[in-house]
Structures are given as C-alpha cells and as structure tokens.
C-alpha cells in the first residue's frame, strides 16, 4: 500500500496553540495500525505535492496570516481542485478563515479567501477564548478556542458541531466549525484531534476510502484521550 500522504500547510507560520499536534496524532494513529504514512511540510513558496490524501492547516497570529496571505491566494485553484476531488482537509482557526470567501478585519480591510468553504468571517472586538467541548456526528470534540473573527456559514456549509450560545463560529448561533464535502473547518485548538479520537479516525477513514483502500480502521485504546477530554470539558472556560 502506498503511504497516506498528509500535507502539513505552513508548519513554520501557522503553528500556534499546538495545532502541529494534529499532524502527530494522525501520523501515529496510522502507524499504530501499521498503515504507512508520509508527512509533507509545505511552506511559503513550496509546491503542493501530487497525490495528496489529506491536508492539515493550523492557526496563526494575525501577522502570520499576513505573511502567508499571498502564497495562500496563489494556491487557491489548487486547493479548490483538491477539495472538489474529495481530498480530506482539516483547517483550524486561521486556516479555516482563509479557506472561506473572505475575512473582513475589524479595521475594515477585506482579505480575500480561496472560497473552498462557503463561509465569511468578520473581525470583532470580542475574543472567544477558553476550554470548549461540542457535540458532533463523530462524538464530542474537545479543545480550546481562541479567536476574535466571527464566522457565518453559507448554505453549502453545514455546522460541524453544536455548542452553547456565546461560543463557536460567531458566538451567536450555537454552532461550531463547518463541514463541506470532505473539508472541515473548526476553531478548536488543543490540538483538537488529541482529545477527539473518533473525529481523527473519521478523517483517516475518509482519506483511505477516497483512495479505494480498505477503510475499516482497527480500534485503538483511546481510554486516556477520552479521560483527558472529560477533564478538559469540565474545566472552567
């Protein structure tokens, strides 16, 4: 079997709040099952490799999003092609926002996104920050949110999870993140996959299924991760 090829987008610029850990989690969950995996870091100016199975993008501070902005724009056609080809994409926070149509900063600047996700983000003065646990189709997702951009979903995007009001996408409509085909966006750092093992496996299952490989993933002992998730979910915001 050829290795599952995971692209890690902008490891140097977009790596805050432990998002790099998502790469570690997916790689390890494949290795534990003796499934071959290859991680390809893609930075500013690097080409996206061919035959990508999964793309991971993390959050960055505003400055970082400026540094990668142009490069990200350049990748627009490639990323749209990958998404419509069913490549599995997980985008956290800043990467989630950039995958949308646009980001309007609080100062009034419009930063165009690549339009992979049918979402629009508007900067705000309030920061949504704290421990966060939400319910998704793939079990409870547990992480830490930290963002001031408020995201509104268009008709093509479905909420990833339900939350309590005051958190999540826009702090209003009690939804968190979005799903559109095989593309997932979320505000959960932590990294989210560390304490959300079912969701991690769903990403792997979809990537394997798309290639036509046996998508039945052997169960792993996730007792510790679930214990950590339970503790985190009970911690004060």
């Amino acid at each position: 079997m050829t290795p599952l090829r995971i692209v890690h987008l902008y490891p140097h610029e977009m790596n805050i709040y432990g998002d790099t850990g998502n790469v570690v989690v997916l790689r390890k969950r494949l290795e534990w099952r003796d499934l071959p995996v290859e991680i390809v870091p893609v930075g500013v100016g690097d080409d996206l490799p061919s035959d990508v199975d999964l793309i991971l993008g993390g959050g960055g501070q505003d400055a970082a999003q400026g540094e990668i902005g142009e490069d990200f724009q350049r990748r627009g056609p490639e990323l749209r092609a990958a998404a419509s080809d069913g490549v599995v994409i997980l985008a956290i926070c800043g990467a989630y926002q950039l995958l949308g149509h646009e980001f309007n900063t609080a100062a009034g600047t419009r930063i165009p996104g690549v339009g992979v996700l049918d979402v629009v983000t508007n900067g705000s003065d309030t920061r949504l920050i704290g421990n966060h646990a939400v319910d998704s189709e793939w079990g409870r997702l547990v992480g830490y949110e930290n963002h001031s951009g408020l995201t509104t979903l268009g008709p093509a995007a479905t909420p990833l999870a339900r939350t309590v009001p005051g958190r999540g996408n826009d702090g209003q409509d009690s939804t968190e993140g979005c799903v559109q085909g095989n593309v997932f966006g979320t505000y959960l750092h932590g990294p989210v996959l560390a304490k959300s093992p079912r969701f991690a496996d769903e990403l792997l299952r979809r990537a394997l299924e798309r290639r036509g490989d046996a998508a039945e993933l052997a169960p792993l002992d996730d007792a510790l991760a679930l214990q950590a998730a339970e503790v985190a979910a009970k911690r004060p915001r």
């Binding site: 850990g21 570690v24 989690v25 390890k28 560390a194 304490k195 510790l224 991760a225 214990q227 950590a228 503790v231 985190a232 911690r235």
Partner: peptide, 14 residues
C-alpha cells in the same frame, strides 16, 4: 496534576 491525562496522551503520541 489537573491535566495529568492530557500529559499522558501527549506522551503516548510520542
């Protein structure tokens, strides 16, 4: 510590 399980998960992945 409070996040003993988190730390153990982190270690496990390494």
């Amino acid at each position: 510590g409070v996040r003993a399980a988190d730390m153990a998960v982190r270690l496990r992945y390494d």
